[in-house]
């Protein structure tokens, strides 16, 4: 009896592990197909522009609001710590470095997974469950090219752009709090930033991060939509997985990239 139970458990673990690997394999093949479908976008730029609007422009508001508040809060916290050491003039340095190196790409990645990633999964999943993808295949239009590729490419393009907007607005938020509320001189604020922020180590590395995050989050989102069970339950689970896996991937990758980039 007990041997049976143990055996059963082992079998379950084996099955789950195998199906995980199976999924990873499917996701990789899927990515391969998507990448091969991308040249089609040259023939159909309108598809891409449309998706850029849905994925990028419609995510703009949440990025702007979040960026503004993150920058403002950072300035306040930085002041509280720095004023004890009489170093409140360095407030701009702390705000800009944490935004450019970490918070800009990470926050944008997380917000994008929640706002646009989930919408992508739900849209593609619903198309699958209403047989729109099958219908397209039978009309000899490859949904990989027509549906998936434009959404994927739009996401990969949009995330770095959204990230740079997030960074800019967050720094402006910090500037506003520092100069208007905390009484830091404007010239001090900007000159500290100008002297200490390096274009390559800080700005470029942040943008590379955002490119990686965008790629991974959109990949997860379109794959989950395309791979979901075509039922209402399956669709719900797929959307949840997009947000959970997407967010965790952003945070995990951020650690790896930071370790690689800043030679710690």
């Amino acid at each position: 009896m007990i041997a049976d139970k143990v055996l059963n458990k082992l079998q379950q673990i084996g099955y789950k592990t195998l199906s995980r690997f199976n999924r990873v394999g499917r996701a990789s093949l899927f990515l391969w197909q998507v990448l091969f479908s991308l040249p089609y976008m040259i023939q159909r730029p309108r598809l891409l522009v449309r998706q850029l609007y849905y994925v990028g422009v419609q995510t703009l508001l949440i990025i702007l609001v979040a960026g503004l508040f993150v920058g403002m809060v950072l300035a306040l916290q930085a002041y509280i710590v720095l004023v004890d050491f009489g170093a409140e003039d360095s407030i701009s340095l702390m705000v800009s470095l944490s935004i450019l190196r970490e918070l800009g790409p990470v926050f944008t990645g997380l917000l994008f997974a929640g706002r646009a990633g989930s919408a992508l999964t739900a849209e593609i999943g619903l198309m699958k469950s209403t047989e729109q993808l099958s219908g397209m295949e039978m009309m000899a239009v490859n949904p990989m090219k027509y549906i998936i590729a434009p959404r994927f490419l739009a996401g990969v393009i949009a995330v770095p752009l959204l990230t740079s907007i997030f960074m800019a607005i967050a720094i402006l938020g910090g500037y506003f709090v520092a100069t208007e509320m905390l009484g830091i001189y404007e010239g001090v604020f900007w000159s500290q930033m100008q002297n200490n922020v390096d274009f390559y180590t800080d700005v470029v590395n942040g943008m590379i991060k955002s490119l990686v995050f965008g790629f991974v989050v959109v990949w997860i989102a379109v794959f989950e939509g395309h791979d979901c069970m075509p039922t209402s339950e399956g669709l719900g689970q797929a959307t949840t997985r997009t947000v959970v896996h997407g967010s965790l991937a952003v945070l995990g990758l951020d650690f790896i990239l930071t370790a690689l980039m800043f030679n710690v």
Partner: peptide, 20 residues
Amino acid sequence: LYDLRRRTMGMLFQSGALLT
């Protein structure tokens, strides 16, 4: 296969499968 579908086949799905 896509060529064959384009030349010879049409399919009417149960739900209609119209692009919404």
